[in-house]
């Protein structure tokens, strides 16, 4: 396949970036999207150009490190996958592909397609944890009965890998799907109930302070989420927050 790539190039956080066109030839449909970018970078390095910086780590869809807004969608046109799981067979010979970084005020660009997502870590630090006694007499988690239904929903919420596709996709750059998944995975379990009220209040306050937008329930995040995190989590967070604020 021969492709035209339109890629966001920005040399550092302060510099103004722009879209730059690249031609790439002989792309195999069996390549992953990131392998295609690796090939492009090899060519750029051989020519003495600056390679395109992009985030990646495990390349098997579990680490949440890869990002990219491809042809107008977070993690590209396919559903339920991260960018590293996207294959070139999803594109046709002669296609033009737009590759942009995840865009949000709270996710500033570091270089090219790499954005700073430590805002998510800050939200986690604000309450995405449970306080457990680790002095050696910790209670066995299996000793606390959890209804299967709750355990399943908590697990579904916990599959969030914190990639930020929800923020990138949301027209308001809202982080509510991420925050609600983190609130839900604890709120549904007995171990998480102890700190539930403080957790939701503090995590939402941190999310607001970091400059993420407000949810308008477009549902785009749920569609683009590589892990299929449901909007029901946002509704649960809204309930938890209301309950906690009235306390």
């Amino acid at each position: 396949m021969n492709l035209t790539l339109k890629i966001w190039r920005q040399s550092n956080a302060k510099e103004q970036g722009k879209m730059v066109d690249y031609k790439i030839a002989n792309v195999s449909p069996d390549m992953s999207f990131l392998e295609m970018l690796d090939v492009l970078n090899n060519e750029l390095i051989e020519k003495g150009d600056d390679p395109v910086a992009f985030d990646h780590d495990c390349r098997e869809g579990i680490c949440g490190m890869c990002s990219l807004f491809i042809n107008g969608e977070a993690h590209g046109p396919d559903r339920g996958i991260t960018t590293c799981q996207l294959h070139m067979r999803k594109f046709k010979d002669g296609d033009t592909i737009y590759i942009e970084p995840f865009r949000a005020k709270a996710f500033p660009v570091i270089k090219d397609l790499v954005v700073d997502r430590t805002a998510f870590d800050k939200i986690q630090h604000a309450g995405g944890f449970i306080s457990v006694n680790t002095s050696g007499n910790t209670q066995d988690a299996n000793a606390i009965p959890v209804p299967k239904h709750d355990a399943d929903r908590a697990f579904d919420a916990a599959t969030c890998i914190g990639c930020g596709a929800c923020v990138a996709t949301c027209k308001n750059s809202s982080a509510m799907l991420f925050v609600s998944a983190k609130v839900s995975q604890f709120a549904l379990l007995p171990q998480g109930k102890v700190e539930a009220a403080d957790r939701v209040l503090n995590m939402v306050a941190e999310m607001d302070a970091l400059g993420f937008g407000n949810c308008t329930n477009t549902g785009a995040c749920e569609v683009e989420c590589p892990k299929g995190i449901s909007l029901e989590n946002i509704a649960r967070m809204n309930r938890e927050y209301l309950k906690a604020s009235l306390k």
């Binding site: 107008g72 477009t218 569609v223 683009e224």
Partner: peptide, 17 residues
């Protein structure tokens, strides 16, 4: 304000009404 720089291409119709 939460997105000062927009996308060059945004296929929003694919994921929302």
């Amino acid at each position: 304000k939460a997105r000062p720089i927009g996308y060059a291409k945004n296929n929003a119709a694919a994921n929302s009404s």
